[in-house]
Simulated assay, not measured.
Amino acid sequence: MNDPGTRPSGTTAEAAAEQVAADFHALYGAVPEGVWAAPGRVNLIGEYTDFNDGLVMPLALPHAAVAAVSRRDDGRLRIHSAEAAATGQGVVQLDVTTLSPGSDTGWAAYPAGVVWALREAGHAVTGADVHLSSTVPTGAGLSSSAALEVVTALALNDLYGLGLTGAELAVLAQRAENAFVGVPCGVMDQMASACCTEGHALHLDARDLTRRQVPFDLAAEGLRLLVVDTRVKHALGDGAYAQRRAGCEAGARALGVRTLRDVPYERLDDALARLDDPTVRAYVRHVVSDNQRVERTMALLDAGDVRAVGAVLTDGHASLRDDLRVSCPELDLVVSAAVGAGALGARMTGGGFGGSAIVLTDAGLADKVATAVEEAFVQEGYPEPRVFTAVPSAGARRLR
């Protein structure tokens, strides 16, 4: 099992800081003013609920975007990525005064969008030199874009003395992705990257951004949470995500509520009976029931019954597959193969249409479960998945 996630939390980012700073110096001819990191995340439960003002429970991963950054006072924004450089792309040069939504559709739109969002909010960001390197897999549903946004936001917040909190930076980063990049995501990914703490899952109420750090020490329970990256790439900007958001909003209008968060789980059957569109009905059923699954998971963790969370995960996958219809054959295969090999439960995580699944299993069965998934992929002729252990890790922070 390929398992970089078993490293101690933060090791990946801290070890990368020196190299990222050296690469910055080689690119720009100066020592950076600082180096920052922001992690990717995996979502334990609560999918497509955040933009419905609902509940989610993500945790940060050791995999992170690391940025070396210095200020500029001439309006120039220079951005470089080690990963983009591997495909022959050089420094992206922009003018902060002419940044506008849709003006950049490549990878640089994520950090550039943050600069735009900060300036639009009245913060006097006059330019920057940025060098980025990330170990968050792209297209895997692990929030690689949010990591880029949050690390940029945190660096500029520190360098320009803006005094913004982690939650405020997350909201600005979400605005960058919504308005500048054009992906109508909720705030979970950015909040997880900005606000998670080591050894905990983050219980987040997306309506008012209230948070609770929930102890999540699976090793002490003899359990492991595996992440299975199917290597099937997804693109949330292709309209499928926006279509489901629009369907949820249509459901809320038809039910006369502000958002689907306002539909009590106990009244779900009554609400569904009032909806004529079968697609909208299915979306509503998923969102309301997934909010309830977050509450069930919290109650189980509080009671120390961590093993019972597995059944909640599998139930959540069925809802994502059948009601929201955002799964795919590879994700379904992860769930069926893992549960068939003795895992306690599994589900797809993230936006779907590819990406990753999570598997809750006894630690002693982890290798057997991972092998069963890998063999199932070989049998179906799929590319080998990447399997690693999710270690609840630190959120965004300054490294040097």
Rank of each mutant, 00 (worst) to 15 (best):
S145H: 08
S145F: 06
A147P: 04
L148N: 11
L148M: 14
E149P: 09
E149W: 09
V151L: 08
V151N: 11
D158E: 14
D158F: 00
L159I: 02
L159M: 05
Y160I: 05
Y160T: 08
G161T: 10
G163K: 09
L164T: 07
T165K: 11
G166W: 00
E168P: 07
E168S: 14
E168A: 15
L169Q: 15
A170T: 04
A170S: 12
V171R: 15
L172C: 09
R175I: 08
A176N: 07
A176G: 15
N178Q: 13
F180K: 01
F180P: 05
F180S: 10
V181C: 13
V181N: 08
G182H: 11
G182Q: 07
G186W: 05
G186K: 11
V187M: 10
M188C: 01
D189F: 06
Q190R: 08
Q190G: 09
M191L: 14
A192T: 06
A192I: 01
A192C: 04
A194H: 00
C195P: 07
C195R: 13
C196R: 09
C196I: 08
E198F: 03
H200F: 05
A201S: 13
L202H: 06
L202Y: 08
D205N: 15
D205R: 14
D205K: 05
D205P: 11
R207W: 11
R207K: 14
D208L: 06
L209R: 15
L209P: 10
T210P: 02
R211S: 15
R211Y: 13
R212F: 00
F216W: 09
F216P: 11
D217I: 02
D217P: 08
L218W: 07
A219P: 03
A219E: 15
A220R: 15
L223D: 12
R224D: 15
R224W: 03
L226Q: 00
V228H: 02
T230E: 06
R231V: 13
K233L: 13
H234C: 09
H234W: 01
H234I: 00
A235P: 06
L236G: 02
G237Y: 03
Y241C: 00
Y241N: 03
R244K: 01
R244I: 03
R245G: 09
R245V: 04
A246I: 05
A246T: 14
A246L: 12
G247W: 05
G247F: 00
C248A: 15
E249G: 07
A250I: 05
A250V: 12
G251S: 04
A252C: 08
A252F: 08
A254H: 13
A254M: 09
